[in-house]
Each structure stands twice: as structure tokens, then as C-alpha cells.
Design a protein around this nucleic acid. Structure first.
Lengths: 232, 232
DNA sequence: GGCGAATGACGAACACTGTTCGCTGAACGA
DNA sequence: TCGTTCAGCGAACAGTGTTCGTCATTCGCC
């Protein structure tokens, strides 16, 4: 069904459209990354969602890097920050890290973009500030707290990225198939060259992503105890 | 000075060249990544180093991903693996991780490619097998050893990648300038919203990459103690 | 020794990418 | 009412990974 162009001569050269705006662009890009992954987020693809060309976006967004940074901070906004309970500070740090991890995973492989960004957006800062406060409340010196936080976020992002590669994008069965392939590959290796890899091949490929993530998180957080100064 | 084309009629249609080979291609790609970074490693760029077009490479390398994987494993070959000394297993694990970290950093931002790869090459396996052995010698159960190793390599690669972004590619002064910018940005934030970030801004941006890397590494490795079974 | 098959090299092309340059048309202030 | 400003946008540029078809060379075999 084509439009009538009536009355004659009044057809606007440009049909009326929802005007572009930064939040709309970010929102749209997030739906794309959720459905098709970060590689599908191109300026053309986002613009096409508004029935226009890529150059139209540059009035609202400096470049693609800025768009990715905006997307990342938007997702950070979905992470809920609890009220501080100093007696449970380690649990709170872990929970906050898990919440951030989950938020990343919710948006496919967006974590890849986060790895390249230094998180200075308002929502990211809100999370940082909260975790910082938890560690300080636990008696960890500021310097160690700052670095440990940095390490935890690096670990969190890297894990989310790695997971997204073998994650739910490929069909679940294909993950298992891939795992089975790697397992078979490990078992077939020369046992005299790689004895431990061959012997414990199943331990190497076994375990869910959550189990692995939690092990690293636990090591990173629990190890902070030794830096804690006696509570005042 | 142009060639003479003598005797007449014998000019070959294609001038004699060094024939391409997989190792040569990988070596060349590594010199490029070292000098210009991973983004400069395109099939065209590598091929140009051999005075040919990109399609010539596909006889030796399945695709770019395979090339990147080959490059990564080649770099893993530069890491020296020590003889096992069970009494120093934790130190050995840390030293091996530091050696891998250093090897990554030597090749600019190659770590980015490593993040996307599951390390199954011979040289990577050599390192994995060695670290596995160290942990087992320390009395860590196979399952925990395998996961911890995975976590350490993930951490190592992610840190090398992050460092390469702000690293020696940009001029050293510009790193400091960037740090100073971030510091100024943090200090100017509203102190009622982000109190800890503002108060300890210098702790957040302070510290060398090595100090930060070592803190994370120490937490990950030392925390394994609690899983150690009493030595036989 | 000579011939057919296999293989490496490679130019051209395809479908993409991020970004820039001007042009158009509408809205707003003087 | 006129100018100015600016978002929207088509076209183009210089890249990207990869594929196809063709060419020349070389190797194995009779």
C-alpha cells in the first residue's frame, strides 16, 4: 500500500519521523547488541533502525567509541547498589560484582566494548563509589581498596567477555559440543609432553561459568583480609 | 635503477620472490603488531610486506582468526618454563604468570587477540601444563587447579590488553597527562554523590601497572592456600 | 624424457566498515 | 520578514575480510 500523496503538491520531501536523540540512539543500539551482538552494532545498522543513513547519527554522538561508552554506562545504570552494611562488606562486594557481571551478560558481548573503555560515566562511578565504600568500611586502606576494585572490575569484564564468546549466542548444544571437542583434543595429546593436561582433561573443561567466575571472585575478595586494619 | 631485462625474451612474468610460508607470515605479522599494533595487522598489510595481495595468504592460513591464533601461540613459545620446585610452587606460579604477562606486553596489544582465543596451541599448552603441575605439587586439587589456572590466564591477558590501550603506544607523557586529566575529573566530581571517589582520587589513579598487576596476581595465587590438602 | 594433475600466487571483485563533506529544509531570534 | 543555525541525510572515501577464477610453476608417474 503506497501513500496517496494527497492533496497534490503537499507531499513533504521528508516524511515526518520520530526525531533522533541521544537516549533513543543508545536505547536502539542496546536492543541490537542484545539481539545480535556487538559486531552487529554499526553506525549503518543503528541508523537503519531510524530509516536513515549513518551520517545522521553524528549530530548526536561524536563517534562510535562514544556511542559504545554511552551504551556501557547505560547498562551500569541497571545495577542496583545496596545500602552499606559494614559487617557484611565482603559479601556485599561479591554481590555487587556479581550484579555487574550479570548486567554485562544480559547484553550479550557488550563487555568487549567495556574492556576498551575507562569507566568514567555517572552510573559506572556510582558502582565504583559504592564498592570503594564497602572496602573502606572493611578496614582496607584506600590505596589497596582502589587497586583491588580496579582488579575486580577488570576480572568481571574480562570474564563476561570471554563467556559471551562461547556463551548463549551459539546454541547451548554447540557449547557442549565445543567442550566435548576440546576434551577429546586434550585426551588425545601426547601424555609424555603434557601429562597433567591429559590426565585431568575433564577438570580443565568442566565446571559452569558461574562456578569458575565465583572462584576467581572469591580469591580476589577474600584475600583482602590480610590488608585489613583492626576495626576502630 | 631499473632491471635490464637481459637477455631479451627471458624476463619472467613474475619476478623471483621469497616464497610465502606459514612461519614467515606469522613472523611478519608479529613484527607489524610490535611496531604498529594489532589494528594494523590486516591481511592486506601483511601481504604487502611480501609485495603481493591478500589472497596469497589464504593458501597458508585458513583465515585471519587462525593467523591471530598462530601469532599468539608463537609468542607463548617465548615464555621459559622452569623446572618444578614444589617447595616454591606459589612463587613459581607467579613468576610464570609474570613471564606470560611480559611476553604479551612485548607484542603491543596482541593480548586483545588472545582474549578471543581458547589457547590450544602447543606452546600455550606447554605453559598450561607447567602451571598445572606447580599447583598440583602444591597440594591443590585438580579441579581447583584447573579453574584457578584458567582465572589466572584470563586475568593476565585482560591486564595486558588494558595496559596496551594506555600503554607505551601513546607517548609516556600522554599517559601521565591522561592520568592527570582523570585525576582532575575525579576531584571535580560532586563530593556528596561520589564521596569516596573524590576523597581518594589519587589512590584511584595512582600506582604503576606492575604494582596493580602484582596485587591481583598475589590475591589469586595466595588465596589458593586454603584449598591445599596437607602434603603427603 | 615428457605429460597430466596439483598447487601456490594473485588480480579483481563483493559486501561490508567508520567517517566526512556538502546540500536541503525547517525552526527560531531579531 | 529576513538570516542564521542546525539536524537530517545522500554520496563518497579509504579501509576491511574473504572468495572466485585464472595463471604459471612444479611434482609424481608412466
Amino acid at each position: 500500500m503506497t501513500e496517496l500523496n494527497w492533496p497534490p503538491g503537499t507531499r513533504p520531501q521528508r516524511p515526518a519521523k520520530v526525531p533522533l536523540s541521544r537516549p533513543e540512539i543508545v536505547r536502539t543500539a542496546l536492543t541490537i547488541v542484545r539481539a545480535e551482538g556487538i559486531d552487529a552494532v554499526s553506525m549503518r545498522r543503528v541508523a537503519a533502525e531510524f530509516d536513515t543513513g549513518p551520517s545522521s547519527l553524528y549530530a548526536h554522538v561524536r563517534n562510535k567509541d562514544e556511542l559504545l561508552a554511552l551504551m556501557f554506562d547505560e547498562v551500569c545504570g541497571e545495577v542496583e547498589v545496596p545500602e552499606l552494611d559494614a559487617s557484611r562488606w565482603k559479601e556485599q562486594v561479591k554481590d555487587l560484582a556479581r550484579a555487574g557481571h550479570a548486567a554485562m551478560l544480559r547484553y550479550n558481548d557488550l563487555a568487549r566494548a567495556a574492556l576498551a573503555t575507562i569507566p568514567t560515566g555517572p552510573n559506572a562511578l556510582r558502582i565504583s563509589n559504592a564498592m570503594f565504600g564497602m572496602m573502606l568500611a572493611g578496614g582496607i586502606p584506600p590505596r589497596i581498596s582502589a587497586w583491588a576494585m580496579d582488579r575486580i572490575f577488570l576480572y568481571l569484564t574480562a570474564d563476561a567477555y570471554e563467556y559471551s564468546i562461547w556463551g548463549p549466542n551459539s546454541r547451548p548444544q554447540s557449547i557442549e559440543a565445543l567442550g566435548a571437542n576440546v576434551l577429546a583434543y586434550f585426551k588425545q595429546l601426547p601424555a609424555d609432553v603434557y601429562p597433567h593436561v591429559v590426565k585431568h582433561a575433564d577438570a580443565l573443561v568442566g565446571g559452569s561459568n558461574d562456578e569458575r567466575f565465583n572462584l576467581g571472585l572469591e580469591l580476589l575478595v577474600d584475600g583482602l583480609d590480610k590488608y585489613a586494619t583492626p576495626p576502630p
